[in-house]
């Protein structure tokens, strides 16, 4: 945990590459989640009738229902995708960087 370890990490291009790719990944997923949620809310605020369309002729089930459930499932899936990559690829690279700095 010496100051040199920090310098060695800072001088390691792998570290900066890792940070850049992890941040980009995290922001893309965040924007995807925010985009989906706010799109949903805006549809409800401005054109709620869009969600009232039945999924099939004669059915009482509207497309709003599968869409709502899909947003919940997407939220879970996106966290899964992030954890999969962060706990695999990103953690492996972090471990290498730490090893090289030791």
């Amino acid at each position: 945990m010496s100051a040199e370890a920090y310098d060695r990490i800072d001088d390691n291009p792998k570290f900066h590459a890792l940070v850049t790719s992890r941040r980009r990944f995290a922001w893309i997923l965040s924007i995807a989640m925010l985009g989906i949620y706010y799109a949903f809310i805006m549809v409800i605020a401005f054109v709620p009738e869009v969600l009232a369309v039945p999924i099939a002729a004669g059915s009482v089930v509207t497309i709003g229902l599968p869409i709502g459930v899909a947003i919940i499932v997407t939220a879970i899936a996106l966290t899964g995708v992030y954890v999969y990559r962060a706990n695999g690829e990103f953690d492996r690279k972090t471990a290498e960087i730490l090893k090289e700095a030791a």
């Binding site: 995290a26 922001w27 997923l29 965040s30 989640m33 925010l34 949620y37 947003i71 919940i72 939220a75 996106l78 966290t79 992030y82 954890v83």
Partner: peptide, 9 residues
């Protein structure tokens, strides 16, 4: 629910 993915990322 949607705050949770953001907390993670």
């Amino acid at each position: 629910l949607v705050g949770w993915p953001i907390i993670l990322f």
